[in-house]
Simulated assay, not measured.
Amino acid sequence: MPPPHDAPGPGELVAAVREFLERDVLGALSGRTRFHALVAINVLGIVERELDLGPGQAERHRARLRDLGFPDDAALAAAIRDGALDDRHAELKDALTAMVRDKLAVADPRHLDD
């Protein structure tokens, strides 16, 4: 971890809290409190994955947009709505599939079929 911060880093801190909830707290809970603890554990897992995968995904996302010729998601969405990419179906499908896969890798990687 670069200065001015010392170890542990954000990912390690989030992982420690998630593991504490999973290992030491969850078993003692029931009902609504257990449900909310499970939600918190899931959220912490998402944060861990975003910290780990996010920078690389952001760079790949920018590259995909650039390759398609758009500065941002809003411009891409507008072009899709307007039919401007109808003649680039295969290229668009590949880019959108990769974008969704990256989102799933963070949100819930169990839905990936790798």
Rank of each mutant, 00 (worst) to 15 (best):
residue 1 M to I: 01
residue 4 P to Y: 01
residue 4 P to W: 02
residue 4 P to T: 01
residue 7 A to W: 05
residue 7 A to I: 06
residue 7 A to K: 09
residue 8 P to E: 04
residue 8 P to T: 05
residue 9 G to W: 05
residue 10 P to Q: 14
residue 10 P to V: 11
residue 11 G to A: 15
residue 11 G to T: 01
residue 12 E to N: 04
residue 15 A to D: 06
residue 15 A to F: 03
residue 16 A to E: 15
residue 16 A to G: 07
residue 17 V to P: 00
residue 17 V to Q: 14
residue 18 R to Q: 14
residue 18 R to P: 03
residue 18 R to H: 05
residue 20 F to N: 09
residue 20 F to L: 03
residue 24 D to T: 02
residue 27 G to I: 08
residue 28 A to Y: 10
residue 29 L to C: 04
residue 29 L to D: 08
residue 30 S to H: 06
residue 31 G to C: 05
residue 32 R to V: 01
residue 32 R to F: 02
residue 33 T to C: 01
residue 37 A to F: 00
residue 37 A to H: 01
residue 41 I to V: 04
residue 42 N to L: 05
residue 42 N to G: 04
residue 42 N to R: 03
residue 43 V to Q: 03
residue 43 V to N: 04
residue 43 V to I: 06
residue 43 V to T: 07
residue 45 G to I: 01
residue 45 G to Q: 01
residue 46 I to L: 14
residue 48 E to S: 12
residue 50 E to T: 13
residue 51 L to I: 13
residue 51 L to Q: 02
residue 51 L to E: 05
residue 51 L to P: 00
residue 53 L to C: 11
residue 53 L to A: 13
residue 55 P to V: 11
residue 56 G to Q: 11
residue 56 G to D: 15
residue 57 Q to I: 11
residue 58 A to F: 00
residue 58 A to Q: 09
residue 59 E to L: 15
residue 61 H to L: 11
residue 63 A to R: 13
residue 64 R to Y: 07
residue 64 R to M: 04
residue 65 L to Y: 14
residue 65 L to C: 08
residue 66 R to Q: 13
residue 66 R to V: 00
residue 68 L to M: 07
residue 69 G to N: 09
residue 69 G to I: 12
residue 70 F to T: 09
residue 71 P to M: 12
residue 73 D to E: 15
residue 73 D to C: 11
residue 75 A to H: 15
residue 77 A to R: 13
residue 77 A to L: 12
residue 78 A to T: 03
residue 78 A to D: 10
residue 79 A to Y: 11
residue 80 I to M: 05
residue 81 R to H: 14
residue 81 R to Q: 03
residue 84 A to Y: 05
residue 85 L to S: 02
residue 86 D to Y: 06
residue 88 R to N: 08
residue 89 H to S: 11
residue 92 L to Q: 05
residue 93 K to I: 09
residue 93 K to A: 12
residue 94 D to C: 02
residue 95 A to K: 06
residue 95 A to W: 13
residue 97 T to A: 05
residue 98 A to D: 09
residue 99 M to K: 04
residue 99 M to A: 04
residue 100 V to I: 15
residue 101 R to W: 03
residue 102 D to Y: 06
residue 102 D to P: 06
residue 104 L to V: 15
residue 104 L to K: 00
residue 104 L to E: 03
residue 104 L to Y: 10
residue 105 A to E: 09
residue 106 V to C: 10
residue 106 V to D: 08
residue 107 A to K: 08
residue 109 P to G: 07
residue 111 H to Q: 14
residue 113 D to T: 06
